[in-house]
Write a protein that binds this DNA or RNA. Sequence first.
DNA 1: CTTAGCACTCTAACCAGGAGAGTGCTAATT
DNA 2: AATTAGCACTCTCCTGGTTAGAGTGCTAAG
Lengths: 352, 352
Amino acid sequence: MVAAGPAGLGSIEVELTARQQSILKQVVEDYILSAIPVPSDKIAGRAGLRVSSATIRNEMMELEELGLLTHPHTSAGRVPADLGYRYYIEHLMTEGGLAPMEQQTVWHQFHQIEAEVDEWGPLAAAVMAQMARTAALVTKLHAPEDRIKRIELVSVQEDLVLVVLILRSGGLQQRMLRLSDPVSREELIKLANRLSDLLEGKSSSEVLQEATKLLGLEQEFALAVARLMQQSERSWSDAIYYEGIGYVSVEPEFGRAEQLFALMEALQRGVTLAPLLGDIVDSGGLRVIIGRENEAEEMHGCSMVLTRYGLSGQAAGVVGIVGPTRMRYWRAVSLVRFMASLLDQLVEQSLR
Amino acid sequence: MVAAGPAGLGSIEVELTARQQSILKQVVEDYILSAIPVPSDKIAGRAGLRVSSATIRNEMMELEELGLLTHPHTSAGRVPADLGYRYYIEHLMTEGGLAPMEQQTVWHQFHQIEAEVDEWGPLAAAVMAQMARTAALVTKLHAPEDRIKRIELVSVQEDLVLVVLILRSGGLQQRMLRLSDPVSREELIKLANRLSDLLEGKSSSEVLQEATKLLGLEQEFALAVARLMQQSERSWSDAIYYEGIGYVSVEPEFGRAEQLFALMEALQRGVTLAPLLGDIVDSGGLRVIIGRENEAEEMHGCSMVLTRYGLSGQAAGVVGIVGPTRMRYWRAVSLVRFMASLLDQLVEQSLR
DNA sequence: CTTAGCACTCTAACCAGGAGAGTGCTAATT
DNA sequence: AATTAGCACTCTCCTGGTTAGAGTGCTAAG
């Protein structure tokens, strides 16, 4: 069973009879797989329910009144409403989990690349996208109150320095800095040591504060360091890896290119995700956002399955799947769960 | 006037009368702007040609026989064929250039970001996409026979080292390396100095050769360095920035999402581009590839305007625009030219 | 060589009309 | 009271035919 959304956002409290549940389940699953509205007799013919299509129809009307199903038009079968999906996910869905073979394959892929932290994200996204056949997203690890472990300065040209920031969370930030005056390599090493001693264990605001006390070259670097930290703390949006958006384009509901691109741009901008992601990192747990539950208009035909990975206090991120409302939630949920736990292990390993 | 494609690939040798040229020009430009087949009387009514639509029609038939125009169906106006675009570009197009205001704006954007080399690419692509309202692409600077300038080793954790490779071309490559045994910071500095002395001025193959003579830790690092260099030399495909693919989706010829995504994936894979890009870097000059002149099937509805930037021997890359065959070539060519010259200057500056 | 005129072709839009799907209701059955 | 058979009703989808309009290609005259 899957945790409900945040309070008010799509919790559902309806009592359904066993038969209604069974019907809803079948409608949802059938529609997800076929993409065509499900007629009453298709359900009736199926094993498990030994009643006629007329009875099914009566029940369906009930479910429609409750807001769980809809009707494209009079003589069409039933289609799950957003609320129907919600109920399905919270009460009816049986998670498949991943086949041992699949788990193996994924493990294998991760071990092959002997990865840096920065490469896990894209790989995880690619793997999920490929296995779910929809778009997948992974944010970078994000450490809200990260602290400096060490600063290194690498001389690239006589007046060009690469500032490398090693963080307690295990993260790495870097940026090129052009100096007003050339500095020798030896000088840089001394400077790096001094700065490291001075700023070790400091947070971004503390670094900024410390920088005001410094002068000249040291200040120049300290400010660069502070900027670098702030930048990494600020926004998620340029730290999200997407993969497999192409899969979504073959779904019938996204036939027109314009609509799909509205979605893509919304995702890329990341605006809609920012608050959500923060929330997920804080709260943990798996979250499913269905259709119009999402505030952004462009996302109304889409659902997302998201969860946190990493260590919530120190360095956490979000993994998830984005697809049409009509997505194979059981698959998506299993995948996201699995991937999150895999990344958890990797992160923990890398932090020792 | 614009350089023709590579030999055989879309050169055109036809003699056209002045009137035919004028008609072709008008058809091409009108169709590019309106996206609807151009009828004979629309041309006839226009200034410049004081002849009736019937005459225009006769000329159009001629142009069609020459393969410069086509016909969607009997009672539709004329549409330029690929060859028609080709002729237009080589003989009829008048390049607009960019308005001084626009040039200013672009300069401004580049100066604002105080950029590292790695940030120019995305910015250039974004700027071009935005100004041309189609997709744009910029490859990373690529130095075919690059040589090592210096190696730096940054200790991240006791058994985790960031290998930073500073290249003569001004490029920077880096990769995390996990060691079998911990190495102290002091040791690393010495090691970096030794490796730098040893490998300075060497190409990737020479580094590899040198590595075989080394032992233990030194060999481990030398191999990592060699791998890093090879990797950067090998493929373009993961070093291309695309922007503005969304613009393409609003063009009527890309209404269906699937088709567009075939294109996107083809671009992303970069397969189709690899040989082309190498060619362009070698030969220099501006190149326009129109519709079916491109080998890749997915690109048959598209054209590209590409040119080299940077310094051909040392560090060069490709900038360009990708759009529907029906693209505003005059605009695209101006933009690509301008952007290439701007990047040229930036690259030169950064190498001093 | 140009052009007026016209027949011809093809598309796009509209409007039946019919088949089929699937519902919602009613009345009979269990 | 719940179930179900039966049927009328509605709506979509497809087909075919008709029409209007666009723009050509040809012909014959200027």
